[in-house]
Amino acid sequence: MKLIFQHLFSNFFNTKEITTTRLYNFAKDSLSRFQTQNDTNDYDDVISYLEEPINRLNEKISTVDVALGLQFGKTMTVDQFIRLFKKTMSDKEGVIADAVGGFESPKYKEFYPHGVSEYSNAPKRELTVLVERVYTVTGTNAALLSPALVTKLQAFKSSWDMNRTDQQQQKGEVSEDRDERDVVRVDVEIALLKAMHALGVMHPGNRNHCYTFFDFNLLFPLSRRTTPPSSSRD
């Protein structure tokens, strides 16, 4: 009984293998299904609390993809992110130095306090500190840099936040603490849970009907995809 209770009321989207991109695709698909089946306005409330967090997650993913020159919806691995971050900080060193007053200027030292090699040689465990630094000093010096460069450099934090969340979940480092995970993603998870419970209240016991609003195959890699068990009682 305890396991049933935990399954019903836990956040089962906060688990390994559900990447942020998969979660977005699943949520967007579910929203579309509610909208399509809303001829009698039964699902107005569900649609209203799904739309905003899904749109925010869409904006975050698309902004990151555009800023970093990625194809929308492409999921970078953590290693790919690290390579891109290191390459960017190396390639843009001269551009940044020229914009902030030269290689000996105090503002250059804000970006590169230990030289460009600090980025080139950084181990994975130091990426959070470096990404946060770049985000902060870019904001402080935004008036000196081109808007495109500001957007690109600051996009690394959003991308790292999403990749970090996915990496932790892949390792099973799951936490219910919103402060430890990307808040934009968590808001989508909570909205989906509310939608599922609301649907259950509207159609209690009608599993097959409720299932038509959610394509769980979108959440997992191909090898993990399953279909709901059939029942002659449904």
Rank of each mutant, 00 (worst) to 15 (best):
I96A: 02
L145N: 01
I61G: 04
L84K: 12
V183M: 02
N25F: 06
S230T: 12
Y49C: 03
R178M: 12
M202P: 11
K60E: 03
Q170L: 11
W160T: 07
H197K: 10
H197F: 09
R224H: 10
F12I: 13
R224I: 15
I96L: 01
D234H: 09
P147Y: 03
T128H: 09
T165L: 06
A122S: 02
P204D: 01
T136Y: 13
P147C: 01
R207M: 15
F13S: 00
V186P: 07
M196P: 06
D39Y: 14
M76D: 11
T138Q: 01
E52M: 14
K16A: 11
Q168W: 14
S10C: 11
N55D: 15
D65K: 02
I61V: 09
Q80W: 04
S231N: 08
E189M: 01
Q6I: 11
N55I: 14
L70K: 06
Y43D: 08
T151I: 11
S231P: 10
K107E: 09
Y135E: 03
S223P: 14
D44T: 06
L193C: 09
E118I: 01
T15D: 01
K124L: 09
N121I: 14
S158A: 04
D45N: 12
Q169M: 14
L199F: 07
R181V: 13
E17W: 08
Y135W: 12
N41I: 14
Q167D: 07
D161Y: 00
N14D: 09
W160L: 06
F81N: 02
Q37M: 10
L50Y: 02
F220A: 08
N206M: 07
D177N: 11
D166M: 04
K87I: 12
N41P: 12
V150G: 06
S175N: 04
A155W: 00
Y135M: 05
S105D: 03
F72H: 14
T77G: 06
L193H: 07
M89F: 02
N141H: 04
G94I: 13
Q168S: 15
G172A: 02
E104R: 12
I4C: 09
N163Q: 06
M1N: 13
N58V: 13
R178A: 12
V188K: 00
P106F: 05
R207F: 15
L84D: 13
Y112Q: 05
A195S: 04
F5L: 15
L127K: 10
D166W: 00
F72L: 12
P221T: 04
D161C: 00
E17A: 10
A142V: 08
Q80H: 06
S158W: 00
I190W: 02
L192D: 01
A195K: 04
T165K: 08
V46Y: 04
L70Q: 07
N14M: 05
C210M: 10
D91S: 05
F5M: 13
E51I: 14
D179T: 13
V201W: 10
Y112L: 07
L149Y: 03
D182I: 05
F5I: 13
E52K: 12
N25H: 08
K152E: 13
T140D: 12
F214C: 04
G102E: 02
L218E: 03
F156E: 00
A143W: 08
E104P: 09
E126F: 10
L31P: 07
T40D: 13
M202Q: 13
L218H: 02
L68V: 01
V46I: 10
V188R: 00
E52H: 11
I82D: 07
V201F: 12
E118M: 02
E110K: 06
T151E: 15
Y24H: 05
V183R: 01
F85W: 03
